[in-house]
Amino acid sequence: MAALNLWNPALGLSIPMVILTAYLLGILHGITPDEHTWPITFSYAIGAYSTRGGLVAGLTFSFAFTIQRGIASELSYLALARWLQNPTVDLWVYVVVGLAMALAGLYMKNTGHVVHIHGTGTHIHKDDQPQMIPPSMALVHGFIAGWGFGAFALIIYTVLAPSMGRASLGWVPGVAFGLGTMTIQATAGALFGRWMRQLRLPESVARQVARRTASNTLFYGGSAFIVAGVGGLMFPQTMSWSIATPLHVHNLHNLGIGFALVTFTVIIVGLGTLIRSMREARRLVMGR
């Protein structure tokens, strides 16, 4: 049996080794700072304001992501990997994901309403008492974000999927990878939600902090995705920028635009808004 190699697996692995490698790569993908997962999971989990809500946010986003990766894995087995590797596809994913994030954040931020999707219909619900963003929106974002392309996707599409031996199993590596990502993102979502629940603030105030944090993260983070996507389409050479590190781990070996988007969205906007909002809320509570 070939040795397990998460950095550069070879063609021709046995089916059990392909599945194990894909699952472990998914776990690694869920842990490392990836622009297609962390900004969205953080936004929805923080807005959920509970352990259960954060878990649901992580699961729903990752479920849609898993379905997409299964579809893309099957397409790769059918020799369409070259189309999936087109860098223009990734840039358009940035734009579409950014638009979806920014629109969701805009409704929460400026109107006090939240977009709800029921079946095929969409309507705006008055948010008199701040509520979590509906999981259906995380499903939409997860499916769109899954079309993004990176080092992990390259391994799934060009090595693991073709190693399955027959078309009826071409989807398996993508789903295994998605389940690995789900393992981490669902756990992270629950932890983010629990963290918000532990704030030492009156519940109504804490919910406002959660909503403000989620709306800012979605709106400004989504805007950054749009700028990155449009900028890359206009000036493709800028997308090759990266900083090499000694870490022999995908998503950490070369830090490029994806890492910059995660840093801006989650750390600068998300955590920055959370800290400022908590300070303001505590001053308000103490002043009562």
Rank of each mutant, 00 (worst) to 15 (best):
Met1Lys: 14
Leu6Phe: 03
Leu6Met: 03
Trp7Thr: 14
Pro9Arg: 04
Leu11Arg: 12
Gly12Lys: 01
Leu13Asn: 02
Ser14Ile: 00
Ile19Trp: 07
Leu20Arg: 03
Leu20Thr: 14
Leu20Ser: 09
Ala22Thr: 12
Ala22His: 04
Leu24Gly: 08
Leu28Pro: 01
Ile31Gly: 11
Pro33His: 00
Asp34Cys: 14
Asp34Pro: 06
Pro39His: 02
Ile40Ala: 15
Ile40Leu: 08
Ser43Pro: 05
Tyr44Glu: 01
Gly47Cys: 03
Ser50Trp: 04
Thr51Val: 14
Thr51Glu: 13
Gly53Ile: 05
Gly53Pro: 04
Gly53Tyr: 06
Val56His: 03
Val56Asn: 10
Thr60Tyr: 15
Phe61Pro: 10
Ser62Tyr: 04
Ala64Trp: 00
Gln68Tyr: 11
Arg69Trp: 09
Arg69Gly: 03
Arg69Asp: 09
Ser73Lys: 10
Glu74Arg: 14
Glu74Ser: 13
Tyr77Phe: 15
Tyr77Ile: 06
Leu78Glu: 10
Leu78Trp: 12
Leu78Phe: 11
Arg82Gln: 14
Leu84Thr: 01
Asn86Ser: 02
Thr88Arg: 11
Val97Gly: 06
Leu99Gly: 07
Leu99Pro: 08
Met101Ala: 06
Tyr107Asn: 07
Met108Asp: 01
Met108His: 12
Val114Met: 02
His116Pro: 10
Ile117Val: 15
Ile117Trp: 09
Ile117Ala: 15
His118Ser: 13
Gly119Ser: 06
Gly119Ala: 06
Gly119Arg: 07
Gly119Val: 04
Gly121Asp: 14
His123Ser: 14
Lys126Gln: 14
Asp127Tyr: 08
Pro130Gly: 03
Ile133Ala: 05
Ser136Asp: 04
Ala138Lys: 00
Leu139Gly: 11
Leu139Gln: 00
Gly148Asn: 12
Gly148Arg: 06
Gly148His: 07
Phe149Tyr: 13
Leu154Ser: 01
Tyr157Ala: 04
Thr158Ser: 13
Val159Ala: 11
Pro162Asn: 00
Arg166Tyr: 13
Ser168Trp: 09
Leu169Ile: 08
Gly170Cys: 07
Val172Phe: 08
Val172Lys: 07
Pro173Val: 07
Pro173Ile: 04
Phe177Val: 04
Leu179Arg: 00
Ile184Lys: 07
Thr187Phe: 15
Thr187Val: 05
Gly189Glu: 08
Leu191Val: 05
Phe192Met: 05
Arg194Trp: 10
Met196Ile: 01
Gln198Asn: 15
Val205Gly: 06
Val205Ile: 12
Arg207Trp: 12
Thr213Val: 06
Asn216Lys: 04
Thr217Lys: 00
Phe219Tyr: 12
Phe219Ile: 00
Gly222Gln: 06
Phe225Cys: 02
Ile226His: 07
Leu233Met: 11
Met234Gln: 04
Met234Ala: 14
Met239Leu: 12
Trp241Leu: 04
Trp241Met: 10
Trp241Arg: 11
Trp241His: 08
Leu247Arg: 09
Leu247Glu: 08
Val249Lys: 08
Asn254Thr: 10
Asn254Arg: 12
Leu255Met: 09
Ile257Lys: 03
Gly258Trp: 07
Thr263Val: 12
Thr265Lys: 01
Val266Pro: 02
Ile268Tyr: 02
Val269Ile: 15
Val269Tyr: 00
Gly272Phe: 05
Thr273Cys: 01
Thr273Phe: 06
Ile275Tyr: 02
Arg282His: 07
Arg282Cys: 04
Arg283Val: 06
Val285Ala: 02
Gly287Ser: 13
Gly287Val: 05
